[in-house]
Design a protein around this nucleic acid. Structure first.
Length: 760
DNA sequence: TGGTTGATACTATAGACAGCATGTC
DNA sequence: CTATAGTATCAACCA
């Protein structure tokens, strides 16, 4: 049963004009009535009108969106759900899965989990990141032809300087392509909803409603001062954090602690073990220990994060940040959701990401290091609100508490004013950023949607930027960018706007033109026997592969390597005296290339990450980036340097699996990654062919697992010809993915129970 | 001489999208 | 511009 606000009456479901089948599915999730904002939004949805729904997080916005999408499907159209984060996409796709009994076919299109075109064609609903949707538009995907409804989740992210422009362009393009489209935009509370609603030509529903009421306050000197000026004393003993944590656990709740560094998240977790452990019941202790055991069952190569988590989890405490691997994060998230964990100390990963609320949110830090400034600076009120918004767990908490920790009376007052009473932020367009314009101008032209100056103007006039800001700055930037694209061979130098083949390729590959240019230069220049390192170093000079952070201590070694390899480098740094900022950036690229080189040399993850001072999650994401760029490089090589294409493809595979060349054959086996592949190789099995006749016992010995050996051999020796694949998943053998291919992090595709749906 | 203590300097700092082709209990 | 915690370095000091 959804918990509702105390003073607002829910609207019973029966009278709202929903189809009985839909109502039945909702009822099965325990949804028998709608929250006030949902009820207010529904008539607009059912009338096919555009809608901007701005409410706090977790106030049931998604449900409204789902109903809009269903309506489109019922009318024989398709629906698109745009999300800003992959993890969010998975969450939404799983939730939408509840409607599959209605015959609705749902798919997910995100970077590391995509569908082949034939399957896409059959889908009624697609959940996609805005970049993926942009990609569909660029390629003129026929799936879009029947589009009837688009949901834009977290539309306030239009103000994100990096990815906001993509969202803005995607929305504008979708609307131009489908004038009859129903647009449903979901947003946090924003200062200028009216302006945004006007651009979207949408009715507005704004509300502060929360299913679980939220109290926000500042902790100082043993008590919380709430924004309504009431106070609450917390029983001693203990410093701020332990006390806030202890008291909420004693009342049966959980705590989410937000900190500003990764290290801080680990330390906070460590610090709180002493507070939490004594408060656990025997069952809880067992559950927490089981979570620790899950980490081992992940089948991942050993990581630092896994070790530290394993130490913390039995105490009912964990940390969560981007240095963790995706499967590791999932274990932590699940344990917290199951309430086996009492406290989670997290960096902002969790604030913007998936829905993981707790009764009490503790905001420990209100500043964060800013690289450009070289020091800490205060985080925005919006960001603090976002963290606070995670307080209050439906079904388990009657109210949520968000508490900032102040270190002085002055700070207490400042937090109250600056953060808790701050007006919501305004959404502004960031479209005039040159890197964004480079990509999108090229895409507009390459897709043929814009063929001349007039159409270009019409397009930009239709954007949020065009609707809200003076066009002069944008026009000037567009001119600069157009010149750049023409000068470097992306656009044909004529009056009409037309892309060259290279321009189209760049757009299709979703590359930043600057990257495409560097890659082209590198591959054209490369000798036949070009080394993997040289190719990786070229990738790492590209804006699409941001380098690892450069530490002082890295400098001597990198300068040495630079001197060694200078002749071989395909992209050279600009000439300069001494170690300038520019050279440092270049060296950071070398460091990144070197880490990828070691990955492909089978250096153990644990060793590699320690040497670089990074997390396994960072390595994974860098590997993913590199893999994607190598695919692009391969396509560019196909045009400009066919002789090197195979070299690039081989490197791409090596990067994908993290192996030397000789393991490339073995690693194609299901369940065999870099570690097991090497073990088989060392046992004398150099390829799949040599394994085929191998005795089970020896393979089992090499893999230290009979079950796994059976699976592997079964794949090689299909019992019935032609059904090799079908037979690999015999019920007696659990699927073991180790180590998983880097991009596929072994995500959890289990169908969630209905109970889990009703959580959001 | 060897070891401890303490002042001082140094170091590092959140997050995460994209191509393509495919698959389980 | 509005930082801070952890660690490495080194000199002063003590037994």
């Amino acid at each position: 049963m959804p918990v509702r606000g105390l003073d607002e009456a829910p609207a019973p479901l029966g009278s709202l004009g929903l189809e009985p089948e839909v109502e039945a599915i909702l009822a099965a999730q325990g949804i028998t009535s709608l929250y006030p904002p949902q009820a207010e939004a529904l008539p607009h949805i059912l009338a096919g009108r555009n809608l901007l729904l701005s409410c706090p997080t977790a106030s049931g916005k998604s449900l409204v969106a789902y109903l809009a999408l269903l309506r489109a499907v019922r009318a024989g159209r398709t629906g698109l759900y745009l999300v800003p984060l992959r993890a969010l996409g998975q969450e939404k796709a799983e939730e939408l899965g509840a409607f599959e009994p209605l015959g609705v076919r749902i798919g997910l299109s995100i970077g590391d989990f995509d569908l082949p075109a034939e399957k896409l064609e059959k889908l009624d609903l697609l959940v996609a990141t805005s970049e993926k949707a942009d990609g569909l538009l660029r390629r003129g995907s026929p799936w879009l032809d029947r589009l009837g409804c688009v949901v834009v989740d977290e539309v306030h992210l239009l103000r994100d300087p990096e990815r906001g422009p993509t969202l803005e362009v995607t929305i504008t393009r979708l609307r131009q392509r489908h004038p009859e489209l129903q647009l449903v935009a979901l947003s946090a509370t924003v200062g200028n909803a009216a302006e945004l609603g006007e651009w979207l030509d949408a009715r507005r529903v704004e509300s502060e409603f929360r299913p679980v009421p939220l109290r926000q306050g500042v902790y100082h000197g043993g008590r919380i001062l709430f924004s309504d000026l009431s106070t609450r004393a917390l029983a001693p003993p203990g410093d701020a954090m332990p006390r806030l944590v202890r008291t909420v656990i004693e009342e049966g709740g959980q705590a989410l602690v937000f900190v500003n560094t990764r290290k801080g998240s680990e330390q906070a977790a460590q610090l709180l073990t002493g507070t939490v452990r004594p408060l656990l019941t025997r069952e809880e202790r067992a559950g927490a220990a089981a979570a620790a055991a899950e980490l081992e069952g992940l089948g991942e190569e050993e990581t630092e994060g896994s070790r530290r988590l394993a130490e913390l989890l039995p105490h009912g405490v964990a940390f969560h940040n981007a240095s963790l691997t995706n499967p590791e994060r999932r274990v932590v998230e699940r344990a917290f959701r199951d309430r086996r964990l009492k406290v989670l100390a997290a960096t902002p990963t969790l604030a913007a990401g998936i829905n993981l609320p707790a009764r009490r949110v503790i905001v420990r830090d209100t500043t964060r290091y800013d690289d450009r400034l070289g020091m800490n600076s205060p985080i925005s009120a919006g960001e603090v609100q976002q963290m606070c918004g995670r307080a209050g767990r439906p079904r388990f908490d009657s109210t949520g508490e968000a508490v900032l920790i102040a270190r002085s009376p002055e700070e207490e007052e400042r937090y109250l004013d600056q953060y808790l009473s701050a007006p919501p932020e305004e959404v502004v367009s960031r479209l005039a950023a040159e890197p964004a314009l480079r990509m999108h101008l090229l895409a507009l032209v390459a897709s043929g949607d814009v063929t001349n100056e007039a159409e270009l103007e019409r397009f930009f006039a239709a954007t949020f930027y065009g609707q809200t800001l003076p066009m002069s700055e944008l026009v000037a930037k567009v001119r600069t960018v157009r010149e750049y694209l023409t000068r470097h061979g992306f656009l044909v130098p004529t009056e009409e706007l037309r892309a060259t083949p290279f321009g189209r390729l760049t757009s299709d590959l979703y590359l930043d033109p600057v990257s495409a240019l560097l890659l082209r230069e590198a591959i054209e220049k490369a000798p036949l026997g070009v080394s993997p390192f040289s190719l990786l170093a070229a990738l790492a000079q590209t804006p699409d592969l941001p380098p690892f952070y450069l530490r002082r201590g890295d400098l001597p070694h990198l300068l040495e390597r630079f001197a060694e390899e200078q002749q071989e480098l395909l992209i050279q740094p600009g000439a300069s005296d001494g170690v300038t900022e520019e050279l440092e950036l270049f060296l950071a690229g070398l460091k990144t290339a070197e880490s990828l080189e070691q990955w492909t040399d089978e250096v153990p993850v644990l060793e590699l990450t320690r040497a670089l001072g990074i997390g396994a999650g960072d390595l994974r994401s860098k590997v993913e980036d590199a893999q994607w760029l190598l695919f692009g490089l391969s396509r560019i090589a196909a045009t400009f340097r066919p002789a090197l294409r195979r070299t690039v493809d081989e490197l791409a595979l090596r990067v994908q699996y993290g192996v030397r060349t000789e393991l490339l054959d073995l690693v194609r086996l299901r369940g065999i990654g870099r570690v097991r592949g090497r073990a088989l190789y060392a046992a004398g099995y150099a390829d799949r062919e040599s394994l085929r006749a191998a005795p089970l016992a020896r393979v089992a010995a090499a893999l230290s697992s009979t079950a796994l050996a059976e699976t592997v051999l079964r794949e090689l020796r299909p019992p019935r010809p032609g059904s090799a694949r079908a037979s690999t998943g015999a019920p007696s053998v659990p699927p073991v993915q180790d180590p998983p291919a880097p991009t596929k992090g072994g995500r959890d595709r289990r169908r969630p129970s209905l109970e889990e749906y009703s959580d959001s």
